[in-house]
Amino acid sequence: MARSLRAWRGRARLRTIALIGIDGSGKTTQAHRLAEALSAAGHPATYHRNAGGRRWLGRLAHRLGRPDAQRLVGRNGMLAVESALRWLAIALALLSCLVTGRTAVMDRYSACQYASIRAHGGQRWERLTRVGYRLFPAPQVTFLLTVDPAEAYRRIERRGTDHESMDWLTAAATAYRTLPEYASFVVVDAGGSPDEVSRRIRAHLTEWLPGDRPAATGPDDADPLATGPGRPGPVSAQARP
């Protein structure tokens, strides 16, 4: 029987939130905003960027005259480096929050690595990676930010710090939808403005965290974590079986 995320209400405290999705979906922006909003609302939180080093490898490849990281170290080499670096980043983030008692807001988590491996066609690597990542607890809530690959491509080109192909973005979007963990994700439409997406995320958390919702005196008071005008937009929550 499906178990709703609301069943977590009343637990001692919120320990880990993960934001996942394809490049250009706004994970970093929303993770920063969420950590700041939670802290302001009395839930001390720390942002953690759990990168796998693919962007760094890509830049290194360009400097060495190769078109991308895969051409530099090979697909298997790239997946091995990415899996190891992300594992280390997640482990350090969890250890830090265990010591400090702060909520960990994770910009990327293990699901991002599984999706990356699937998008690269490395199913054998996924099995091995899952063994190593099994050490990490599942976040209490994982937000999957979804956006049309074409819009994600435009965002990446606008920021001008890296480049991703449409083929890769489309494959990554499909990979997230096919993960066995997909049913446990809170799927958030990230195609709107950053403020709209933030309200959708916070709308779920204000309902989920006990004691966070004050008596509303107006339409903008319904979300104690909101920083902008307007009411939260819809969010699709799917439960873990």
Rank of each mutant, 00 (worst) to 15 (best):
T46H: 07
Y47N: 11
H48F: 15
R49K: 12
R49S: 15
N50K: 01
A51V: 13
A51H: 08
G52D: 13
G53I: 08
G53F: 09
R55A: 09
W56F: 05
L57C: 09
L57M: 12
L57I: 07
R59Y: 01
A61R: 03
A61C: 04
A61T: 09
H62W: 06
L64D: 11
L64A: 14
R66N: 02
D68E: 07
D68Y: 03
A69Q: 02
A69G: 07
A69K: 00
Q70R: 11
Q70V: 15
R71P: 00
R71W: 07
R71L: 02
L72Q: 08
V73I: 15
V73C: 10
V73E: 05
G74R: 05
G74P: 09
G74N: 07
R75W: 08
N76I: 01
G77T: 11
M78A: 11
M78F: 09
M78P: 07
M78C: 11
A80T: 15
A80P: 09
V81H: 04
V81D: 03
E82R: 09
A84M: 13
L85N: 03
L85S: 07
R86S: 04
W87F: 14
W87I: 01
L88R: 12
L88P: 01
L88W: 03
A89P: 08
I90F: 10
A91C: 00
L92T: 10
A93N: 13
A93W: 11
L94Y: 14
L95Q: 12
L95D: 14
S96L: 10
C97K: 04
L98W: 14
V99M: 12
T100E: 06
T100H: 04
R102V: 03
A104D: 05
A104R: 02
A104F: 03
A104G: 10
V105I: 12
V105Y: 07
M106T: 02
M106Y: 04
R108M: 04
R108Q: 05
R108Y: 13
Y109I: 05
A111V: 11
A111G: 09
A111R: 06
C112R: 03
C112D: 15
C112E: 07
C112G: 10
Q113I: 13
Y114S: 12
Y114F: 06
A115Q: 11
S116R: 08
S116Q: 05
S116W: 12
R118L: 10
A119R: 08
A119G: 04
A119E: 07
H120D: 15
H120L: 14
H120F: 13
H120G: 10
H120S: 10
H120Q: 06
G122A: 15
Q123N: 06
